[in-house]
Design a protein around this nucleic acid. Structure first.
Lengths: 242, 242
DNA sequence: CACAAGAACCTGTATCTACAAGTCATAACC
DNA sequence: GGTTATGACTTGTAGATACAGGTTCTTGTG
């Protein structure tokens, strides 16, 4: 399993930036230097720089050397999808309490979003997520039957559903997240321990496989004191992290 | 002013996808075909496909042809930054009412974020943004003096500050947006016409030039019924739009 | 000394070539 | 008939080369 050269270069540069070997505000070595250093042609070097640019780590312009904008990159795919990973990275103790899991026919709107027949069954679950033992987020998830059925037999208080699905070879490829603000309803208020009507950050998420077939639809509500979304965009790109 | 070939290819493909000439779920032509069609080598073609991938428009994998995931791309940089552009794209009539513009010394926290001395002056303004004549967003912006001073003489009820700054050659390059939910305070409630305590989507934004020097700090609060943030991420990338 | 011209350097764009590695449909085989 | 192998096709990676266009420092001139 050989790692592509452009990934090696990107990782190395990321590490130097994170470690402070190249300070924020300082310029990276020129492409020519990097080519020498890694014994590579300009192709892989530019691919690596392009990746860092997408992550919001570096900026620059034609004729100018690339400049370090930030030492902490937006986190990669897994951490964006997984509450558990995110908690680990930020040094908190993740936890969860399953409230309900059910096999039922979806509401028409949910069926439409997932692209399934309203007469087909789906797997729905409600789970309270904890950080260091305190309520942080309430998730209401709906899975298409093929993907969700194995969840009925799994220990969902144990850890990350995302990791579990990856283990089973489910092709989680892309996700569209929509964020807005809502007032806490009765269930939110009780489980998240906030007053009814308190502002919550809502994330609605549609996850699809690599051919675009929907797999999961979720409505997650965060206490705003424990989670924010961060999006970084430069002139030709965007990049985000929770 | 010649437009780079890879941009031409990307625009053309984007247009075909938006127009439905290539349906959602269908496969794009192979790279070899696109090379023939645009009389290009694989370089520009792959650059174009990579751009569409970043936007969440297409997906795919090694050996497989690229597949259309979505007909509506996350909008590019300008629209992410500019309320005015965004409104135009979505077919609404943007408007604004300047509440206040002032030259004053910043609070310590704001000074720290912008990297200016607390004894330096900054330009602060409060503006209510409207969609089709109805209150949609309240923005509280702080500019470093060099950039903000010209704003004192400009007609800020006329249109986009972003466009105005670009005209003056200000190097707006990248921005970091942080989203969360807050309860409306007294000023929010009065101007946005919502009850005090109602949930609002808050965007805090730090805009920098291409060398990473901060230019603007802003606290924008949206009525959640008029704005959501959408983030699309695929296995190796992230991309976002309001 | 100030300013302008030039050289050196850097990134952006594009082409051609070659091979590795994954997917898919067809054909041959048991 | 079902299963496996083969081959065509496709994308991913990497190299070498060339030139355009922007930035920056240096040098020479008024």
């Amino acid at each position: 399993m050989t790692i592509p050269l452009h990934r090696v270069i990107a990782s190395e540069l990321r590490q130097r930036i994170r470690a402070g070997a190249i300070a924020v505000g300082a310029a990276l070595p020129s492409e020519a230097r990097l080519c020498e250093e890694f014994s590579a042609s300009r192709g892989p070097v530019r691919q690596a720089l392009s990746a860092l640019r997408e992550e919001g780590l570096i900026g620059g312009g034609q004729g100018k050397r690339a400049v370090v904008l930030d030492a902490v990159p937006a986190q990669p795919f897994e951490s964006f999808l997984s509450f558990t990973r995110r908690a680990e990275i930020t040094g908190h103790e993740p936890g969860q309490r399953l409230q309900e899991i059910a096999l039922r026919r979806p509401e028409p709107t949910v069926a439409a979003v997932l692209g399934v027949d309203p007469d087909d069954v789906v797997v729905q679950l409600v789970r309270l997520r904890l950080l260091d033992g305190r309520p942080a987020m309430l998730e209401r998830m709906t899975y298409v039957e093929a993907v969700g059925r194995p969840l009925l037999d799994a220990d969902l208080d144990a850890g990350s559903i995302y990791a579990l699905l990856l283990d089973r070879g489910v092709d989680l490829h892309s996700a569209r997240h929509t964020f807005d603000a809502v007032a806490a309803d009765a269930l939110d208020a009780r489980l998240l321990d906030v007053p009814e009507g308190a502002p919550l950050l809502r994330e609605r998420r549609l996850t699809t496989d690599s051919s675009g077939t929907p797999i999961e639809w979720s409505d997650d509500r965060y206490r705003p004191d424990v989670a924010t979304v961060t999006v970084t965009n430069t002139r030709n790109s965007r990049s985000a992290a929770l």
